[in-house]
């Protein structure tokens, strides 16, 4: 009687076939690069004895948002309300979950005894909130071009929306960061040499400069958009400019597995040894990932 339950039935095969039909290999490859890159990065950080900070915690748990929130609030205070006393930024509520991996350890499976899933209430209350956190300030959500492959999606993402991760968007969150970025000295000096425009517009123009380009460069590198990378470099973006995460474009391209883009950046003199906030260089990450193609693109030797 029980035998039929142990074998695959037509409906089982139909489901497996449906999944195969809807499979998105490009999204899968991107996911692979991100996951393995993050693991390699974490391993490298552990070996180097530096604090572990996951890409997710940087991008999706608030680091990016915190940065955007801080600079946005700073700009608002500077331009719109100069007489107001400083106020605390709400972005602090979404401070990066550094140590998310450490938190994982608490729920790490131990193959039975402590591996039970949480027991959830058996009775659902109709008015139970689906999201615990209070509504947060509206901040642009990182999309395809986001560093480290941020893949936050809209709530209506349904069966197969992985391709959205590859989509190149026009209105990118980096623009929002750029519009709210702190004043950069060189740009301010450049403006100082020109006829004095209205102070506010000059400041706003200055704020749109360097940070935006660095973030754009990183985003383009992470997404493998080589033409955009070339364009940004041609427009004077430093090849080793650090983005909001503290990573260089080359670092982002390596983590995302963008071999051609990495080769392009290396060809433009991008450093292998410039370290990010975690104390890791491109060389460290490449060594940990050990992708022969990437190593060749970077001009580094594969570990024995």
């Amino acid at each position: 009687m029980d035998e039929p339950d142990t074998a695959l039935e037509p409906i089982d095969r139909a489901y497996a076939n449906a999944e195969a039909l809807l499979a998105d290999d490009a999204a899968r490859a991107q996911r692979r690069a991100r996951v393995l890159g993050e693991i390699a990065r974490t391993d490298a950080a552990r070996r180097a004895g530096t604090p572990v900070r996951t890409g997710r915690s940087m991008m999706q748990s608030g680091g990016w948002l915190a940065a955007a929130g801080v600079v946005g609030l700073s700009l608002f205070v500077a331009i719109q309300a100069p007489q107001r006393p400083p106020i605390a930024t709400p972005a602090a509520r979404r401070a990066p979950a550094a140590g998310a991996l450490v938190a994982d350890a608490a729920s790490a499976p131990t193959q039975k005894s402590t591996d039970h899933p949480p027991v959830l209430p058996k009775v659902a209350t109709s008015n139970a909130p689906r999201i615990a956190a209070a509504p947060l300030p509206v901040v642009p959500t990182p999309r395809s071009g986001a560093p480290m492959g941020g893949l936050a999606r809209g709530p209506d993402a349904s069966v197969e929306t992985d391709k959205a991760a590859n989509a190149v968007t026009d209105a990118r969150p980096e623009d929002a960061i750029a519009a709210a970025a702190p004043v950069v000295a060189p740009r301010a000096e450049a403006f100082a040499a020109s006829p004095p425009p209205p102070p506010r517009s000059a400041a706003v123009s200055a704020l749109r400069a360097a940070p935006s380009q660095a973030d754009r460069l990183s985003a383009a590198a992470a997404a493998g958009r080589a033409p955009e990378v070339e364009d940004l470099l041609a427009r004077g973006t430093p090849v080793d400019a650090r983005d909001a995460d503290g990573d260089t474009a080359l670092m982002k391209s390596v983590v995302a597995g963008r071999v051609k883009t990495a080769a392009l950046l290396r060809g433009r003199g991008a450093s292998l040894d410039r370290k990010n906030r975690a104390g890791l260089s491109v060389r460290d990450v490449a060594k940990a990932i050990d992708d022969p193609d990437m190593n060749q693109a970077l001009g580094v030797k594969s570990p024995p």
Binding site: I39, T42, D104, A108, P109, T110, Q111, D156, T161
Partner: peptide, 24 residues
């Protein structure tokens, strides 16, 4: 579908845990 947006993160978290606790 209501929580689809979390899939990428949870997938990554899963493999990060596998890597971190491989010894167990």
């Amino acid at each position: 579908p209501a929580h689809a947006e979390a899939a990428e993160d949870l997938h990554q978290d899963t493999w990060m845990s596998v890597a971190a606790h491989a010894g167990s």
